[in-house]
């Protein structure tokens, strides 16, 4: 049974997870906009997915000849989102590097992205429903 388990659905699920994580990270950056020595963080997912889909990313993968083998390399086709802290820059005299304007635009961007993913999920469910009901 492979109703909603195909790869595009899994990718969308991963993108929603990444978007949730990014929302958390941006909320944390905004919350610490006045905290001395705080460094902002960022979530990367979309670029990693793009690299993986286009095959540009060199992947070292162990060959599995038995289902009981350990998986070497990425275990699934969807990359896990990664949080990166930007340690190299400073915005203020107190070593804080949160640019509030940038964070607010990233927040808006993330929200729209999330809405787009939800819409895409709904489209897929609708298509599947057409297939199931036959009309």
């Amino acid at each position: 049974m492979n109703l909603l388990n195909d790869i595009s659905f899994k990718r969308l699920q991963g993108a929603l997870d990444a978007s949730n994580m990014r929302q958390r990270t941006i909320a944390d950056n905004v919350a610490n906009a006045d905290t001395p020595y705080f460094k902002r963080s960022d979530v990367s997912f979309e670029e990693m997915l793009q690299d993986q889909m286009s095959g540009d990313l060199p992947v070292l993968k162990g060959k599995v000849t038995d289902p009981r083998h350990f998986v070497i390399g990425p275990s699934s086709l969807v990359p896990t989102p990664v949080v990166n802290m930007d340690q190299s820059t400073s915005m203020n005299n107190n070593q804080n590097n949160v640019d509030i304007d940038r964070e607010m635009s990233l927040l808006a961007d993330n929200q729209l992205r999330y809405n787009a993913y939800i819409q895409q999920v709904n489209e897929q469910i609708k298509m599947m429903r057409v297939g199931v009901e036959g009309r």
Binding site: A27, V30, A33, E103, M104, A108, N110, I118
Partner: peptide, 20 residues
């Protein structure tokens, strides 16, 4: 700024309730 972030999170969660 933090109120804006909170509202944005709220909008995202209510959007997620529309899945399906």
């Amino acid at each position: 700024a933090n109120v804006t972030a909170l509202n944005s999170t709220k909008a995202m969660i209510s959007k997620a309730l529309e899945i399906g």
